[in-house]
């Protein structure tokens, strides 16, 4: 049974991007509104951690997926598990914070909520908002409802949205026009009922100027 975790640990330390560590920060403290997903490509566990016997338990999900250990084998010692998980979490959060602080995140994308719809956007994107929407032509907007921000290496998930001021998604209104003419035709069979209407919906085109992270995780 012990051979498995050793293998897992080596593969964790290895070069391949793997699925294992998804650490949630702020599980114990309420009010923090971001959780972090960090791929193991950039996460390096300390050798001490990998040789720790309780890693078996902390990696129980992956062991379970392999189907190589029965449930009796994996009876986690919860205190030790929590300790190890907290350590991994802190490590991940500090690495994310460091990359935000020295602006080495690279290109970011964000999921923003605009007028009832969600869009995945990045710098230079075009987004069309359908229906009546107040912003005027040429206005610069800052989209405040950001549900998620991601870079190549990590993802920040809002619960349900990220803190105000954490992510800055800026956009410009570049077009306010009408859609093509849509035909709305209603008919009831054998009831002599036919209605035909035509409508053109208002469309607003946005140019996404920038997606940035302005605060580190858990910074108030």
């Amino acid at each position: 049974m012990m051979s498995l975790p050793r293998r897992l640990a080596t593969s964790l330390l290895g070069h391949v991007r793997s699925h294992i560590t998804s650490a949630t920060c702020g599980t114990s403290s309420a009010g923090k509104s971001a959780s972090v997903l960090w791929s193991c490509r950039t996460l390096s566990l300390a050798p001490g951690v990998s040789s720790c016997p309780s890693l078996v338990a902390s990696l129980r999900t992956s062991a379970a997926q392999l189907g190589s250990a029965s449930y009796q084998d994996v009876q986690p010692d919860y205190e030790v598990v929590a300790e190890t998980e907290n350590k991994i979490t802190a490590d991940v959060v500090s690495q994310v914070n460091r990359s935000i602080a020295d602006r080495s995140t690279g290109r970011l994308f964000a999921v923003v909520h605009i007028n009832g719809k969600q869009f995945k956007v990045t710098d230079g994107d075009l987004v069309v908002v359908q229906g009546q929407w107040p912003p005027a032509l040429g206005q610069q907007l800052r989209l405040e409802k950001v549900l998620l921000v991601g870079s190549a290496d990590f993802t920040l998930l809002g619960r349900p949205v990220l803190d105000r001021g954490m992510a800055a998604v800026e956009a410009t209104v570049i077009e306010k026009s009408l859609s093509h003419t849509k035909t709305i035709f209603r008919k009831k069979k054998r009831k002599n009922y036919r209605r035909i209407n035509f409508c053109r919906m208002p469309l607003t085109t946005l140019r996404i100027n920038s997606v940035r992270l302005e605060k580190t995780v858990d910074q108030s």
Binding site: L108, F119, V121, T122, D125, V127, V128, G150, S179, T181
Partner: peptide
């Protein structure tokens, strides 16, 4: 005026692969 096939356009469809 034309029918829009998508309500969004991006030059970078994927960042995390």
């Amino acid at each position: 005026v034309a029918r829009l096939r998508k309500m969004q356009h991006t030059d970078r469809p994927s960042i995390q692969g």
